[in-house]
């Protein structure tokens, strides 16, 4: 079983309470089962045969996780409770126990991949489904690139495997990743730039783990824009909400903060602490389609922590988080690209 690779997480998390204050879903649903302790304990029961992985309640519990990585980051030994949860999902799928709704979601991701590449240049900008849905993020990036006088290509059209991986469809995720890698290779690009941190994580971590080596360098837009060393300033007071993928999955990628500093923004601490995830479930990628009510609760949790919800200027790295906060709260949210483009 896939979970056998995570025995250390099972054995250490199963009776541990030390990161429960960071359990995103636990904090909004007030449930005991939405914590690394109970999930690991359930999975320990699975390894002993006491609990069955085809139990619908156990499956539902495992698919509710927001996969923020905040607990793993807080953990002194960084036990990989995220890897464990993903492995359990893969076992559920492999044993044919995926709920019909999850199967349908996976099917829809497999069917929609139709890659289109436009433009020309050595930079390939990946417009993933969430970036596309905002309707504004890619435009902001275009404005920056025009001002910087850099021509670039865009690629869009589907899932590069991240969504499928979070659902537990590993072979299908690998196939999607390979397909995308071929598109990148064909484009001849030297640099792939992505706005969505989920895509960034897929390209820098998931792809190599699958043995896929991209010829191009992968950069998050914050890294790329920073590398352009443009002179624009936007010296406003902002609240930057960390991205799960950039902070918790990628060792605190410094670029978003460096970019804010470079444009002269005054970043104020949001909420009461810098440990919780304020992303609406970015790590789970598809949570809105698994249980939208959870995303709504996560969004409201964030709104309740704003100093002045109607006037605060919230910045995010993730188009996903922008979309969800826009949908469920009245907060004013921009992505980093939009914030920089605004100053042009």
């Amino acid at each position: 079983m896939h979970i056998d690779k995570y025995t250390d997480a099972i054995l250490n998390c199963r009776f541990c309470f030390m990161c429960r204050h960071l359990s995103g879903i636990g904090n909004v649903a007030f449930t005991e089962s939405d914590t690394p302790r109970v999930r690991a304990s359930l999975l320990y029961g699975v390894t002993t045969g006491r609990i069955q992985l085809d139990n619908p309640d156990v499956i539902a519990c495992l698919y509710r996780h927001d996969l923020s990585g905040a607990c793993r980051r807080n953990c002194v030994k960084h036990f990989d409770e995220i890897g464990l949860n993903l492995a359990a999902r893969a076992d559920i799928v492999a044993s044919g126990c995926a709920p019909a709704s999850i199967q349908a979601l996976a099917d829809s991701l497999m069917q929609t991949a139709r890659w289109t590449v436009d433009g020309s240049g050595e930079v390939l900008y990946f417009v993933d489904l969430y970036t596309q849905e905002t309707g504004t993020v890619a435009a902001a990036f275009a404005k920056i690139m025009a001002k910087a006088k850099v021509s670039y290509q865009t690629v869009s059209g589907g899932c590069i495997g991240k969504g499928l991986k979070t659902l537990g469809y590993l072979p299908e995720a690998a196939a999607a990743a390979k397909q995308f890698a071929a598109v990148v290779e064909k484009s001849g690009a030297k640099t792939v730039v992505v706005s969505n941190p989920a895509a960034y994580d897929a390209l820098v971590n998931d792809f190599p783990a699958l043995g896929i080596k991209l010829a191009a360098t992968v950069m998050h837009t914050s890294e790329y824009i920073l590398s352009l060393a443009l002179p624009w300033q936007n010296p406003q007071e902002v609240y930057y909400l960390e991205s799960d993928f950039l902070r918790n999955y990628n060792s605190d990628l410094p670029a978003p903060h460096s970019l804010l500093q470079a444009v002269g923004a005054k970043n104020r601490p949001f909420g009461t602490n810098d440990e919780e995830s304020y992303t609406c479930g970015e790590g789970a990628v598809l949570l809105p389609r698994i249980d939208a009510s959870l995303v709504e609760k996560l969004a409201q949790y964030i709104e309740a922590r704003a100093d002045a919800p109607s006037t605060d200027r919230i910045l995010v790295a993730s188009p996903y988080t922008k979309l969800m906060l826009g949908k469920y709260t009245s907060l004013h949210v921009q992505t980093l690209e939009e914030f920089v483009a605004e100053a042009i």
Binding site: S33, V38, S41, L42, G45, D57, A60
Partner: peptide, 22 residues
């Protein structure tokens, strides 16, 4: 809530005996 997962979550606290039992 009557879900198995949540009821199970409330069947073990930080006492060694229920942990050992599980």
């Amino acid at each position: 809530c009557t879900h198995e997962a949540d009821k199970f979550g409330h069947s073990i606290d930080y006492y060694w005996i229920p942990e050992m039992w599980h």
